[in-house]
Nucleic acid binder design. Sequence first.
DNA 1: TTCTTCATGTGACTGCAATCATAAATCCCG
DNA 2: CGGGATTTATGATTGCAGTCACATGAAGAA
Lengths: 165, 165
Amino acid sequence: MFFLKSGRLRMQRVTPDGGTVSLHIVRPGETCAEPSLFSSRYHCDMLAETDAEVWLFPKKELVDSLRGNPESLWDFAGGLARGLQGMRQRYELKQIRSAPERVLQLLRLRCDDSGAYRTSGSLKDMAAELGLTHEALYRAMAALERSRRIRRSADLLQILPTKPE
Amino acid sequence: MFFLKSGRLRMQRVTPDGGTVSLHIVRPGETCAEPSLFSSRYHCDMLAETDAEVWLFPKKELVDSLRGNPESLWDFAGGLARGLQGMRQRYELKQIRSAPERVLQLLRLRCDDSGAYRTSGSLKDMAAELGLTHEALYRAMAALERSRRIRRSADLLQILPTKPE
DNA sequence: TTCTTCATGTGACTGCAATCATAAATCCCG
DNA sequence: CGGGATTTATGATTGCAGTCACATGAAGAA
C-alpha cells in the first residue's frame, strides 16, 4: 500500500489486445492499493505521469497497526467507502454513450455550488478520465459551447442553466 | 445499510436524459450501501427484480456496533475493499470497446481454473452487467463461437485456448 | 390444448465515436 | 530569440454497437 505525497500517478492495466485501460488517476493526498491488504495478489500497473513522491507501507506492519487501532481502522474504512462511491460515479459516467452528455455529467459531479469547474491538468487528461479520445472531447466541448450549455474561459468551465421552454 | 437474504436487487441511477444506469446487481449474501455509513446522503435507486428478503440495519446502531468491535470492523473493511476491486474490474471491462473482447474479458475474470463459466441468470442479465444490449451480446457470442474462441453448451461457457501461430 | 409472456436469436439500417490526417497555437528549453 | 514537443483543435472516413423489426422456442397459465 502507498500514499501519494506529490505528483500524479496513473493506475492502469493492459488489455489482452494491447490497449491500456486507465483505472484511476491518483492525486496527492490519496492512498492506494487498499484491496491488496485483504487479498494476497493484486495486479495492475502504476505509472508515474510526473515526478512523484510516494510513501510505501509494508503490508504486514500496516495491517498490524490498523488491527491494533480501531480509530484509524474506522478512518481507513471510510476511505475505502469513499473510493467505492467515486468508482461507482465513474462507472455511471461510462454508461452514458453520448460524448457531450458524458462531459456534462462529469461537470455536474465535479463542479462547485456555483456550477463552475476549474480544469486540473490538460484536456487530454480529462479525456482519458472520461474514457474518450481527445478529439471526441474537443468536439463535445465545442458542441456544448455552440448550443450554450456550457461556457469556457481559460481553464474554467461553467454549466449554463438550461433555458425553460 | 442492508443485507440481502434472498432475491435479486438492481442498484441503479437515472441519468439526466432519462436513461437508467445499472450500477450493481446485488445477490444473496451481499451487503450494500456501505458508503452511506460515512456520508450523510446517498443517492441511488434500489430495484427488486424478484421477490426479495432484505435485512435493514439502522445506521446508528450499526456504526456503534462496528466501532465497538474491531474484528467485525476489519471484516467490514475487507468487504469494502473487495467491492472496490470488483467495481474496478467492471470499470475496466467498460473500457473495452469491442463487444466480443468485452465478453471474453468477463469470462476471463469469472471463469474457474479450467476456463469454464456457468452462467447465472439469463443472457439478458449478463448483457446488462456487461453494459451491452442483448442483441449485441448474442452476436458477440455467436462470433466468438464461430471463430472458435469459446464453446457453449447449455449454460456452460468455456474459453478455448488461442492457437499458437 | 391454446394463449401469453419472455428469452433467444438474426437481419437491416443508422448514428456516433474512433481513427487518420493535418494544422494552428502554446509551452518549454537552450 | 528560435525550434522541437505538446496541446488544442477540425475535417474526412470508417467500424461497430445501438436500434428497430421480426421469427422461433420454451415456460406457465387458463
